[in-house]
C-alpha cells in the first residue's frame, strides 16, 4: 500500500513538473519583443520565421534559410543591427510578392517596398523607411502579415 502511494506521488510530481515546464517560447518571445523600444535584425527575422511557420534556428541558420528563399538578397546586417522599417518592408514585399506598386516593381528598393507595404495596410504611411522599428510596431506588422497569410 505504502509502495503504491509513493509511486502515485512521484508520478503526480513528475507530471505536474512536466506540465509547468512546458516551453511557451512563442508567447514569451512576443511579449518580450512588444515592450522593446527598438528591435534588432535578429529578432525581426526570428519573428518573421514564426509567422511563416518555419523552423527557427540560430541567427546564421535563419539568415541562410532566408537567403535561400531569396528574401534577404542585398541585406548584409548582423544579428544586433537595429531593424529599420525599410529592411523589413523589403523582406515582406518579396515574400508576399507585392506587385501593386509601380515604383516598387521598377526599383525594388527599401523605400518603395515600404510604400507597397503601406498600400497593403501592413504598415502606416506616416514615417520613413529609415526609422528603427519598435517592438510594438513589429508585433503589429507581424499580426497583419499573419492575417494576410490566413492566420486566425
Amino acid at each position: 500500500m505504502r509502495k503504491q502511494i509513493i509511486i502515485l506521488t512521484i508520478s503526480c510530481i513528475l507530471l505536474s513538473s512536466q506540465l509547468y515546464g512546458q516551453k511557451i517560447s512563442q508567447v514569451t518571445f512576443i511579449n518580450e519583443i512588444a515592450d522593446k523600444e527598438q528591435v534588432t535584425y535578429g529578432e525581426g527575422i526570428q519573428f518573421f520565421l514564426m509567422v511563416i511557420e518555419k523552423k527557427i534556428g540560430s541567427f546564421q541558420e535563419n539568415v541562410n534559410f532566408l537567403n535561400k528563399e531569396g528574401l534577404t538578397k542585398g541585406i548584409t546586417l548582423t544579428k544586433d543591427s537595429p531593424l529599420r522599417r525599410g529592411t523589413l518592408s523589403l523582406i515582406l514585399a518579396r515574400h508576399l510578392k507585392l506587385s501593386d506598386s509601380l515604383l516598387y516593381n521598377i526599383f525594388k528598393s527599401e523605400r518603395y517596398a515600404y510604400r507597397a507595404c503601406a498600400a497593403k495596410e501592413i504598415m502606416e504611411y506616416d514615417g520613413s523607411e529609415w526609422e528603427i522599428l519598435s517592438g510594438g510596431e513589429l508585433v503589429e506588422i507581424m499580426t497583419k502579415v499573419s492575417e494576410m497569410l490566413g492566420g486566425n
Binding site: I24, Q26, V27, I30, N31, M50, V51, E53, M142, G151
Partner: peptide, 8 residues
C-alpha cells in the same frame, strides 16, 4: 492572457 501566431 497571451496568444501566439495562428493561435486563439
Amino acid at each position: 492572457i497571451s496568444t501566439g501566431v495562428k493561435s486563439w
